[in-house]
């Protein structure tokens, strides 16, 4: 019984890690790799991390670091200039590529700067408290609020624009 509960917790953490990695890295395969790698590292240290909450926070911090490293090395090798473009015209062209309204919102979110994207994901998708977010992103709560507010406003503007054009 205890074991089943443990497996369920691990499963939930795994899904969460995957969603965060997918948000940052976009690619499903890369997000999958990131999730697996981080989980292995968490295992190796799981005896030191007694509390489930601390395991989760630790795992989320690890996956964030992993993804940032991946993004950095990509930018260094010039592999994805695309993802570093954060202008609004890009959002508009994305509107034509999107299959439906929801995948259009996804494109807008994915075009946010990495920091805003991560904070938005943690708050609006994972429902994390500001304290939990602070632990993962290592930022002051005020700075987190500023980034979150920018992300939300930016999504609103893009969606309003598209709504005006109609898709």
């Amino acid at each position: 019984m205890k074991e089943a509960a443990y497996i369920e917790t691990v499963h939930q953490i795994e899904q969460k890690l995957y969603r965060i990695a997918k948000r940052l890295l976009i690619s499903h395969e890369e997000a999958q790799d990131a999730t697996q790698e981080v989980l292995v590292k968490v295992w190796q240290r799981s005896s030191e991390l007694s509390h489930v909450k601390s395991i989760e926070a630790y795992a989320m911090t690890m996956v964030k670091n992993y993804c940032y490293d991946r993004l950095k090395s990509k930018q260094a090798s010039n592999m994805s200039i695309e993802y570093s473009i954060h202008d609004k015209s890009h959002d508009q062209s994305a509107a034509f590529e999107a299959k439906d309204r929801l995948s259009f919102v996804e494109k807008i979110v994915n075009n946010l700067p990495d920091k805003q994207k991560l904070i938005w994901q943690l708050r609006d998708v994972e429902g994390a408290t500001f304290e939990e977010i602070a632990e993962v992103v290592q930022m002051e709560p005020t700075a987190i609020r500023v980034n979150l507010s920018r992300a939300r406003k930016r999504i609103k503007e893009s969606l309003e624009q598209i709504d005006a054009y109609g898709i």
Binding site: Q15, Y18, R19, A31, E106, V125, D163
Partner: peptide, 18 residues
């Protein structure tokens, strides 16, 4: 409308599974 879309999306994003 934008808010409806945004909240609808965040809910589906929450369901996304590996």
């Amino acid at each position: 409308n934008w808010a409806k879309m945004l909240f609808a999306y965040s809910e589906t994003a929450r369901e996304e599974q590996l």
